[in-house]
Amino acid sequence: MSNTAVQLQSIITCPHCGHQKEETMPTDACQYFYVCENCHQRLQPKAGDCCVYCSYGSVKCPPVQQGTCHC
């Protein structure tokens, strides 16, 4: 684990329409689904990623940042 504070804000970018929105990530779990508020597409993680923030966010999810993700 690093001494760096965990970042909770991430800008998620929809791969379908390019819409971006800053979201607060959950601290205790990975988020597997996200619905774009612009085009209403349901996003899922890319193969090998644990959550939508790791796939489409500007910052990896807190469990990955902390090295505690067991996905």
Rank of each mutant, 00 (worst) to 15 (best):
Ala29Leu: 08
Thr68Asn: 10
Gly48Asn: 13
His16Leu: 09
Glu23Thr: 11
Asn38Gly: 00
Gly18Asp: 01
Cys17Thr: 06
Leu43Val: 01
Thr4Gln: 11
Cys51Asp: 11
Asp49Met: 09
Cys71Glu: 09
Cys69Pro: 03
Leu43Tyr: 02
Ile12His: 10
Leu8Ser: 11
Cys71Ala: 13
Gln20Met: 13
Pro45Lys: 05
Pro45Leu: 06
Cys51Asn: 04
Cys69Lys: 03
Gln20Val: 07
Pro15Thr: 01
Ala5Phe: 06
Thr4Asn: 10
Ala47Pro: 08
Gly57Asp: 04
Glu22Cys: 12
Ile12Ala: 08
Gln20Glu: 15
Glu22Met: 14
Asp28Met: 04
Gly57Ala: 05
Arg42Asn: 12
Cys17Glu: 07
Cys36Met: 06
His19Pro: 07
Gln31Met: 10
Cys50Asp: 11
Phe33Tyr: 11
Val6Trp: 04
Ala47Gly: 07
Thr4Leu: 13
Gly57His: 02
Cys51Arg: 04
Gly48Asp: 11
Ala47Phe: 06
Ser10Ala: 15
His70Pro: 01
Gln41Arg: 15
Ala47Gln: 13
Gln7Val: 12
Cys61Phe: 05
Phe33Val: 07
Gln44Val: 12
Arg42His: 05
Ile11Ser: 05
Leu8Tyr: 14
Asp28Lys: 08
Tyr32Asp: 10
Cys50Val: 05
Gln44Asn: 07
Pro26Met: 10
Lys21Gly: 05
Gly67Trp: 09
Val35Thr: 15
Gln65Lys: 05
Cys50Phe: 04
Ser10Thr: 15
His16Asp: 14
Gln31Asn: 10
Met1Phe: 13
His70Phe: 10
Lys46Ile: 09
Thr4Lys: 14
Ala47Leu: 10
Gly18Gln: 06
Tyr34Glu: 02
Cys61Trp: 02
His16Ala: 12
Pro15Glu: 03
Met25Lys: 00
Ala47Val: 09
Ser2Gly: 08
Ile11Glu: 07
Gln66Asp: 02
Glu23Ile: 15
Gln41Lys: 15
Thr68Gln: 09
Lys46Arg: 14
Pro62His: 02
Gly67Ala: 02
Cys17Tyr: 05
Cys71Thr: 05
Pro63Asp: 03
Cys71His: 13
Tyr32His: 13
Ile12Glu: 07
Gly67Arg: 01
Pro62Gly: 08
Gln41Asn: 15
Cys14Leu: 02
Gln7Trp: 01
Cys50Arg: 01
Gln9Pro: 00
Val35Ala: 12
Lys46His: 10
Cys71Ile: 04
Cys14Trp: 04
Leu8Asn: 09
Gly48His: 11
Gln7Arg: 12
Thr13Lys: 12
His40Gly: 06
Thr24Val: 14
Asp49Phe: 10
Glu23Gln: 14
Cys36Glu: 03
Phe33His: 09
Met25Gly: 00
His16Lys: 12
Gly57Pro: 02
Asn3His: 02
His70Cys: 14
Val52Met: 07
Ser58Gln: 03
Asn38Pro: 00
Ser58Asn: 03
Cys54Phe: 03
Ser10Leu: 13
Cys54Val: 02
Gln65Pro: 06
Ser2Pro: 05
Leu43Ile: 00
Pro63Arg: 06
Val64Arg: 00
Val59Leu: 06
Val59Ser: 01
Lys60Cys: 11
Gly18Ser: 06
